[in-house]
């Protein structure tokens, strides 16, 4: 009897969280998968079952492959760069230096600002001719003006720079918190043993930071598929989809082209991709990160 009561209590306690999770995560995800097997309903035409037709379209859609490749390059460049930069900044502001809180604050400032707002600032930096970067290039080095966002070669790199600048400060906070939990006695012991700074970092600090690195890298991966606000403001995915990413393309297909079935199909791809990455990170890396 009491066991049964406990069972009911357990479920009752779980209930609120479960309802929220179901309503906003699981049900939509399942609906998305179902929708991807139907055609898009439009006004007078009902949705009908089309089997794998949407997936065939997907494989034959050059834009899809383009945004997917863009997204992979984007992830490959922004994840390591922002992690490296954030670690560097955290190590620097963890030391005793003059104006430490000012430096910390300025590193963190990009995180606080809304991405749409900073995208507008960066838009000015990149403006050809009279934008900040070109003014410096032309004024000091006598170089010709350059259309940073208007050329297919540079536009994605420009987007990556904004993302790294935006993310590094956020990750720095996690590294900083982790660094402050490392007991000072370790450093003292290392100093007595005569270990150099770099040995100390590679043998002690870095391994102790591994759980944070795992956490940060998972976040960075998610963000590299999730942060697309600046693309709306800065390029709209152009020129010729050179700066379009998977999520941005999904938005376009769903809310500009109103092809909801195809958007659902693209979402399934994103879902599968992210689940695989997350599983990989948790199961394979989690075993190796904890310092024993």
């Amino acid at each position: 009897m009491t066991q049964r009561l406990q069972w009911i209590y357990g479920w009752l306690l779980l209930f609120p969280a479960m309802v929220m999770l179901m309503a906003f995560t699981h049900v939509p995800a399942v609906t998305t998968v179902i929708n991807s097997f139907f055609s898009t309903p439009r006004g007078r035409r009902e949705a009908k079952f089309v089997g794998l037709a949407n997936y065939e379209n997907l494989i034959n859609d050059p834009t899809f492959w383009k945004v997917l490749t863009n997204n992979l390059w984007y992830a490959l460049a922004t994840i390591p760069a922002s992690i490296f930069l954030s670690l560097l900044m955290a190590l620097w502001v963890n030391d005793k230096l003059k104006g430490r809180s000012l430096v910390r604050m300025s590193f963190f400032a990009p995180t606080v600002l809304p991405l749409i707002a900073v995208a507008n600032i960066w838009l000015f930096f990149y403006t050809p001719g009279f934008g900040l970067i070109d003014q410096i290039r032309m004024g000091f080095f006598g170089l010709p003006e350059n259309s940073w966002l208007g050329s297919q070669e540079t536009v994605l790199i420009c987007m990556m720079v904004v993302t790294i600048w935006k993310e590094a400060g956020f990750f720095m906070i996690f590294y900083l918190a982790a660094l402050q939990t490392i007991p000072p006695s370790l450093r003292e012991a290392a100093a007595i043993e005569g270990a150099s700074r770099s040995t100390f970092f590679w043998r002690v600090t870095f391994p102790l930071l591994m759980p944070t690195t795992l956490f940060v890298s998972i976040n960075a991966v998610i963000n590299s598929f999730r942060m697309v606000d600046h693309i709306f403001t800065m390029t709209g995915g152009g020129p010729d989809n050179a700066s379009s990413l998977l999520l941005f393309y999904i938005y376009e297909v769903a809310f500009k082209f109103w092809d909801t079935a195809y958007a659902a199909t693209l979402t399934v791809v994103l879902l599968v991709l992210l689940s695989l990455i997350a599983l990989g990170q948790f199961f394979f890396m989690d075993r190796k990160v904890h310092y024993r």
């Binding site: 050809p128 001719g129 259309s147 966002l149």
Partner: peptide
């Protein structure tokens, strides 16, 4: 005309600046 894609939004500004 400048090469590459030319931004719509900053066009009036480019005109005012003499660009």
């Amino acid at each position: 005309m400048a090469p590459g894609i030319i931004e719509w939004g900053s066009t009036p500004k480019a005109f005012f600046e003499g660009n």
